[in-house]
Design a protein around this nucleic acid. Structure first.
Lengths: 228, 228
DNA sequence: TGTACATCAGTGAACGCGCGTTCACTGATGTAC
DNA sequence: TGTACATCAGTGAACGCGCGTTCACTGATGTAC
């Protein structure tokens, strides 16, 4: 039993229940109870450290404390597991954007708040990439884009961007005619900046990153916002 | 011999010489003569089809018609071969930008030509990504960025961007104060747009891509260029 | 309330695969005298 | 100009590795009667 504990056994509710049960120490329950989620969780951890290529079905099963074969009760094949992980990563990206959004206290001045929201969304995107490079890479590793996983607000990363752009138009900061192109451009900038920080610009110290992000978003704003 | 021809044998100068030699058919020369380049070429072909992960040392050797071990005369390990391929890919990216640049006939009006050059550089970047997704992915797969491989003009992809930005400042189209931020922003936009076309935006038909690129570059220009 | 049985969720041994890399070697080349 | 020999560029067999996946199986669960 001790061996089981020291290996990568995950403690689900049912496992804990079993462990606190009185009486002689017996084997863990035959049925895990939440194996699918446990496998995804373990696989997310692998992706966090090494990106999508580091997701290894056998290792995920090992960490959960289950035979490799058991995974095939819940996923038809490895790609299905990877897809599930990618979904989690996209949801985490959305949550990172929401967190940055929540950090801003609205002033009540529509134009100012709309611009601040747009910037927050962009910062949240890039922050997620630099803080969780493995998950960021995994999020965009899917072969085909399916339904977009969602954060706490019920919006996907893309949805949050859209809402921020709508806010700019509503506040009269951005011309409605520019909305479509602005969406592509804004997404491209934050996505590109993310990738550059992880690649060619990885020498930029973390402390300087915020300044680079701000300066870039300034230029974006200048192109997007109505001149007055 | 016929078997040799139908398998993935590369024909270098020395091989051709050997083949056109009169007399009975003998074995190919023991020394390849240009094995390092031949291996990189074969590996580039693998990367073209499947990205950096598709670069397989044994397969590259197989295609050149040489034992896998022979590769170790020229590369210490697989990563070294991958790095060499990445260099080729970065050079090809620069060449793609140069090609787009060469397509534009200067008018002699400095401001107009500077803007056109900037746009051409951006288009060349994104075109390369969409036309050679495998090579594009490989170009940016390097662990650390080293000396930047160079196109026909002697400038790297990054160098070509820099030159275009200098041109904008010289022509009075862009404020010198914006140059630093403009470089990051412009690079981020074209890199991000490239990645999006290969991922979330891959459903956009190829015919519409040029329009999206143009609209995006329009917005970039609006942010960058001096208002008058 | 008890029991038979279909169904579900696990097990563990095994398979084939192709990879990167090492080893001891051999054939070709070029240079010193 | 010829020859000995160090060096360079190949060969082919072999190794260990860890993977995804299949197989025949067994233990647990829940439902019909």
């Amino acid at each position: 039993m001790l061996t089981l504990l020291t290996c990568h056994q995950k403690f689900t509710v049912s496992t804990l229940f079993f462990m606190t049960r009185p009486g002689p120490i017996t084997a863990p329950p035959y049925h895990h109870g939440d194996l699918r989620n446990a496998l995804v969780e373990a696989a997310v951890e692998l992706a966090r450290q090494g990106g999508p290529g580091a997701i290894v079905l056998r290792e995920a099963a090992r960490r959960v404390g289950v035979s490799a074969t058991a995974a095939y009760r819940h996923f038809g094949s490895l790609p299905e597991l990877v897809e599930a992980v990618a979904g989690e990563c996209l949801a985490a990206l959305a949550r990172s954007m929401e967190a940055e959004l929540a950090d801003y206290a609205p002033t009540g001045i529509p134009a100012q708040d709309a611009v601040a929201a747009m910037r927050a969304v962009g910062r949240g995107y890039v922050h997620f990439a630099t803080e969780e490079p493995g998950l960021f890479a995994t999020a965009f590793s899917g072969v085909k884009e399916h339904a977009n996983p969602v954060g706490a607000s019920g919006l996907s990363a893309w949805g949050l961007l859209e809402r921020a752009l709508d806010g700019l138009v509503d506040a009269g900061v951005m011309a409605a005619a520019d909305r479509t192109a602005a969406a592509t451009m804004a997404w491209a900038v934050v996505h590109g900046l993310s990738e550059l920080f992880l690649g060619p610009l990885q020498e930029v110290p973390a402390a300087e990153r915020a300044g680079v992000i701000d300066a870039t978003l300034d230029l974006v704003g200048r192109g997007l916002f109505v001149r007055n």
